[in-house]
Design a binder for these strands. Structure first.
Length: 480
RNA sequence: GGCGCCAUCGUCUAGCGGUUAGGACGCCGGCCUCUCAAGCCGGUAACACGGGUUCGAUUCCCGUUGGCGCUACCA
């Protein structure tokens, strides 16, 4: 039963990567890395109508952004390719052919309309709408006749003859009664495989050892187990991970709030933060550790600690985790990631040592990188806008005195303006005027930044530099 | 309707028969402080319900209720 660990993530390329899918991918990846196994990426694009190459690109990009590197896949190849189901049609056909020859499947010539009518009838009679086996055991002559009518057959696998059970790694033993399933289609009338058939053939041929996927696939497992048996192949282990739901317990929708990896990226969430948060949705560290790097996650991950109940996506907590990572990542990287937000705002010089220092100063208060142009805005303008709540500090009498006092003190002082010299000047002015605390600092803060909140004032002033500080002080002092 | 999965603070969770039911986010208060944030300290708040099993159930079993999923020639 023990074979090399090989897991796969098999998205349908029908849009951007959803956070739910991202978590499934993450669990697969963590499991593979933890076990030293292979992480395979397979594209399930048999649904021609919905699959697009742009979507495939988008999904690959999202995955790469998250840092979930795959060992085999459509773009990197591998020994078990091809990795796009649309390129494996011949493989499915061969296997279906074999099953047909072995009598394990049969051709069904029923049309959509006929099936639909039977379904409708069953429903009104209060019966379970299930395929009635009309084409089971058709003679060659009968098939020929149906075929000559121009009917294109599907291929169906026989209904189960007994109950089926799976020992799920996160759910334990789950049993499926034989009655719940009729003869099911494995090949459509146009020759394309259905999901359940393609998955089994692929997972088997790609020697997937563990199928870690969303809970919605649990009922499919019965069909798949049946197909493994029919094909004479050993099934993998299964682990069905619960769904991620909305605050109101419904399926996470695109409607309210962000739900795709791309959206979170645009809002300025670091990939390690999103990854970190997603890992905590349904899994927990044995020591309750919450802020973790990719490496720490890999080290600690264990399928046995994966929860079986659905989890609600909480953007507040994601933001909290993001704030941590923004503060703790190397400043060079954070500055790099922050740059596009400045560029989008058309702010000048998002580069260089000063830029990095500014990002370093303001990142303390950030939950999302997208907030950074505002947080650092006053550094990049000669005349920062004075916000309403800052105005009173500039208009008061003591405020004016402080500004003028500081201005002359600073003007009298030679050399560079650094943190220490600013503090020294502030102290001197305060003593002279008998002002301290807010009365001393707030007018200066308002004059330099236009706001009443922000990083430590001495640091702000030092970063602004002597010229800007003097200019802003004199302009503010003259305002009144 | 049938089948399945799930059920601890508002949310994410720990717990795997005996705990003052723990942690985290959020919220509230305090400390720190020029402000905000961070940090630190404290507070708020939960075992859905009913039966069993057991000396003892949050924990095991059954049922009820509720949520979700599947029930396609979608994945």
């Amino acid at each position: 039963m023990s074979r090399p660990v090989r897991v796969r993530f098999a998205p349908s390329p029908t849009g951007h990567l959803h956070v739910g899918s991202a978590r499934t991918a993450l669990f697969n990846w963590l499991f593979a890395r933890h076990e030293g196994g292979a992480f395979v990426l397979r594209i399930e694009d048999t649904d021609l109508a919905r699959s697009t190459v742009e979507s495939e690109r988008a999904v690959l990009d999202d995955l790469a952004w998250l840092g979930l590197a795959w060992d085999e896949g459509p773009d990197v190849g591998g020994a078990y390719g091809p990795y796009r189901q649309s390129e494996r049609l011949e493989i499915y056909r061969e296997h279906a052919e074999r099953l047909l020859a072995e009598g394990k499947t049969f051709r069904c010539y029923c049309t959509d309309e006929e099936l639909e009518e039977k379904r409708r009838l069953a429903l009104t009679d209060g019966r379970i709408p299930q395929y009635d086996g009309a084409c089971r055991g058709l003679s060659a002559a009968a098939e020929a006749a149906l075929s000559s009518e121009g009917r294109r057959p599907t291929v169906r696998a026989h209904r189960p003859t007994r109950d089926v059970a799976v020992d799920d790694l996160v759910r334990g033993r789950v049993e499926f009664a034989r009655e719940m399933l009729g003869d099911f289609i494995i090949l459509r009338s146009d020759g394309r495989p259905t999901y359940n058939f393609a998955v089994v053939v692929d997972d088997a041929l790609m020697e997937i050892s563990h199928v870690v996927r969303a809970e919605e696939h649990l009922p499919n497992t019965m069909r798949q187990l049946l197909l493994y048996e029919a094909l004479g192949l050993e099934p993998p282990s299964f682990a069905h991970v619960s769904l991620i739901v909305d605050k109101d317990r419904s399926k996470l929708s695109k409607r309210r709030g962000a739900s795709s990896v791309a959206e979170f990226r645009e809002q300025g969430f670091l990939s390690e933060a999103l990854l970190n948060y997603l890992a905590l949705l349904g899994w927990s560290h044995p020591d309750a550790k919450e802020i973790m790097s990719r490496d720490e996650l890999v080290r600690a991950f264990d399928l046995a600690r994966v929860s079986s109940s659905p989890a609600a996506f909480d953007e507040d907590k994601l933001a909290w985790i993001n704030a941590h990572h923004i503060r703790e990542e190397p400043i060079g990287r954070v500055a790099e990631l922050a740059r596009p937000y400045f560029e989008a705002e058309g702010v000048c010089e998002p580069d260089g040592e000063r830029f990095e220092a500014i990002v370093d100063l303001v990142r303390e208060g950030l939950e999302r990188l997208s907030e950074i142009p505002y947080a650092a805005g006053f550094f990049f303008t000669d005349d920062p806008e004075v916000e309403d709540d800052a105005r009173p500090w500039l208009e008061s009498e003591t405020g004016e005195a402080v500004l003028k006092g500081l201005l002359s003190t600073l003007e009298a002082e030679e050399g560079v303006l650094d943190q220490a010299s600013v503090k020294r000047a502030l102290k001197a002015v305060g003593e002279e005027l008998g002002a301290r605390g807010k009365d001393l600092y707030m007018p200066v803060r308002a004059a330099l930044t236009g706001r009443i909140h922000g990083p430590s004032l001495a640091l702000v002033a030092a970063l602004l530099g002597r010229d800007r500080v003097l200019a802003r002080l004199s302009r503010a002092a003259a305002r009144r």
